[in-house]
């Protein structure tokens, strides 16, 4: 499953509510998940925290989650937010935009 943030979350990629929706989408998807952040700068600790950093590794054991095309500053922020929550998931990959 590919989740393109600029399409699926075009009206709100800022709030905790939107982040929670993203997290639930990841849980409910069958198979591997690719989250595509191209065409956007997120600049929201709340969205990243709720959508990614709060992922429960037990709920995504059977799938690989790839986060791609993050703007450089968003990439740094997401890494920091994940560290703040002590998120350590082997099957989660995060890539900066090239």
């Amino acid at each position: 499953m590919i989740i393109k943030i600029s399409e699926r979350f075009k009206d709100d990629y800022i709030t905790r509510e939107a982040g929670e929706e993203l997290r639930e989408l990841i849980y409910s998807s069958e198979g591997d998940v690719e989250i595509d952040f191209s065409d956007l700068k997120i600049a929201s600790a709340s969205f990243f925290d709720e959508g990614i950093a709060k992922l429960d590794k037990d709920k995504i054991l059977s799938k690989k989650v790839s986060i791609k095309n993050l703007f450089r500053k968003d990439f740094e922020l997401l890494i920091n937010v994940c560290k703040s929550r002590n998120l350590s998931i082997e099957n989660l990959e995060i890539f900066e935009r090239e």
Partner: peptide, 15 residues
């Protein structure tokens, strides 16, 4: 970079 910082701060403040 600074525009992104301002963006982030305004978003957190308005939330």
């Amino acid at each position: 970079d600074k525009a992104w910082d301002v963006d982030l701060i305004l978003k957190e403040l308005m939330q």
